[in-house]
Amino acid sequence: MSIHEQTSVRSSHQHRAVLSTAVEALPAGERPHPGPLALLPRPNALFSDAVAAGGGQVEELSADTRALVWLSTQGAEQLADALDTNPQIEWVQLPWAGVDGFAHVLAAKARPGLLWTSAKGAYAEPVAEHALTLALALLRVLPTRVRATSWSRVPEGRSLYGLNVVIVGAGGIAIELLRLLAPFDVTTTVVRRSAAPVAGADRTVASDALDDVLPEADVVFVAAASTAETAQMFSTRQFALMKPVAHIVNIARGALIDTDALVTALNDGEIAGAGLDVTKPEPLPDGHPLWDVPNCIITPHSADTPDMTAPLLAERIRLNVEAFLGDGRFVGVVDPLAGY
């Protein structure tokens, strides 16, 4: 069974990884040398079993360690220290799809002979499901309905069927969103770094054409990586370009949206609503103006809960340990300088 086939097999936990590109073996000269692996900051039975299932050996961090699996979403400086004191490490597996929390470490420690992989694509199914849930809730004015204390006689709500949808990003979440949206007969535009076509999308445009496609969008899904280039890619100008009936859903990172501009756009009626699983700042403080916006749904970065992600990360670890010890077909390779 190929890597692609393996990452498409559903586990007993229902979900599977969704990859936006085919997995290819690293050239022999670029592969890390096999050896013991360390699980940091502390071992975990599920992930230790995943290493063993891939044929690997978990040991305490030492001069013999050749690979490191980082299991915390925090502790970037601790990770940096581990790499500084163990220059023999040749592969690091990170726990989440987005690596923005470790971006400065990746950039500072980038060197020939050090491979980085993440969980990108691993959590695409639950996150895309959450994104669609937020969009449907907004279109059906559920924020108003759940707060109601009397029977409304105002005929509100829109159907998703036949609408124009813009998806910003072309990773696993975007690919899964396209699949979930297909039964609704929507017209989809994917905005990505290049205009290379994305399978399943009606149209693909480069990121510099974002402003050109926003005026026709009914729903905008934000699913791009958080980098210096994507910071606040949605701000005052972008909201002004959108329809008053349009909704925006962000399941990527809060930094992609200018929060102050979003609050203004929602309060002024420039857009109809927002569904946010991520915010900036995050966590969103009590008393923040976003909490008072009636047409905004905020979920606490819970599109993929630990119960959903743990088996998916374990499978990613297993696959990459097999690649580490075998043919070099690593899944989720990260460019440390680009940050994704």
Rank of each mutant, 00 (worst) to 15 (best):
202 D>I: 08
203 R>Q: 14
203 R>Y: 06
203 R>P: 05
204 T>Q: 15
205 V>W: 07
206 A>M: 07
208 D>E: 13
208 D>P: 01
209 A>Q: 15
210 L>N: 02
210 L>C: 04
212 D>W: 03
212 D>F: 09
212 D>C: 08
214 L>T: 01
215 P>Y: 09
215 P>A: 07
216 E>Q: 15
217 A>F: 05
218 D>N: 10
218 D>W: 07
219 V>E: 10
219 V>F: 11
219 V>L: 11
219 V>H: 09
220 V>E: 14
221 F>M: 04
222 V>H: 02
222 V>S: 02
223 A>F: 09
224 A>P: 07
224 A>S: 13
225 A>Y: 09
225 A>C: 12
225 A>L: 11
226 S>C: 14
226 S>Y: 02
226 S>A: 15
227 T>G: 11
227 T>V: 03
227 T>R: 14
228 A>H: 06
228 A>N: 03
228 A>R: 08
228 A>E: 13
229 E>I: 00
231 A>N: 12
232 Q>H: 08
233 M>E: 09
235 S>E: 00
236 T>N: 10
236 T>K: 12
238 Q>N: 12
239 F>E: 03
239 F>W: 06
239 F>Q: 07
241 L>C: 09
241 L>D: 05
242 M>Y: 10
243 K>Y: 11
243 K>Q: 15
243 K>T: 02
243 K>P: 12
245 V>Q: 14
246 A>E: 13
246 A>Y: 05
246 A>R: 02
246 A>S: 13
247 H>S: 14
247 H>F: 02
248 I>C: 11
249 V>L: 13
250 N>Q: 12
250 N>V: 04
251 I>D: 09
251 I>V: 15
251 I>H: 11
251 I>C: 13
252 A>Y: 10
252 A>F: 10
253 R>G: 11
255 A>I: 01
256 L>I: 00
256 L>S: 07
257 I>C: 04
257 I>F: 01
258 D>L: 01
258 D>F: 00
258 D>N: 08
258 D>S: 03
259 T>F: 03
259 T>E: 06
259 T>R: 04
260 D>T: 01
261 A>Y: 00
261 A>E: 00
263 V>I: 03
267 N>G: 13
267 N>Q: 15
267 N>P: 05
267 N>W: 01
268 D>G: 07
268 D>R: 13
269 G>H: 14
270 E>I: 01
271 I>A: 05
271 I>N: 07
271 I>Q: 03
272 A>C: 10
275 G>I: 06
277 D>W: 06
277 D>A: 13
278 V>K: 04
280 K>P: 00
281 P>T: 00
281 P>S: 04
282 E>M: 07
282 E>S: 12
282 E>F: 11
283 P>G: 11
284 L>V: 01
285 P>G: 10
285 P>H: 09
285 P>M: 09
285 P>L: 08
286 D>C: 10
286 D>F: 13
287 G>M: 12
289 P>D: 04
289 P>R: 04
292 D>Q: 14
292 D>S: 14
292 D>P: 05
293 V>Q: 12
293 V>A: 14
294 P>G: 09
296 C>A: 15
296 C>T: 08
297 I>M: 13
298 I>P: 05
298 I>F: 07
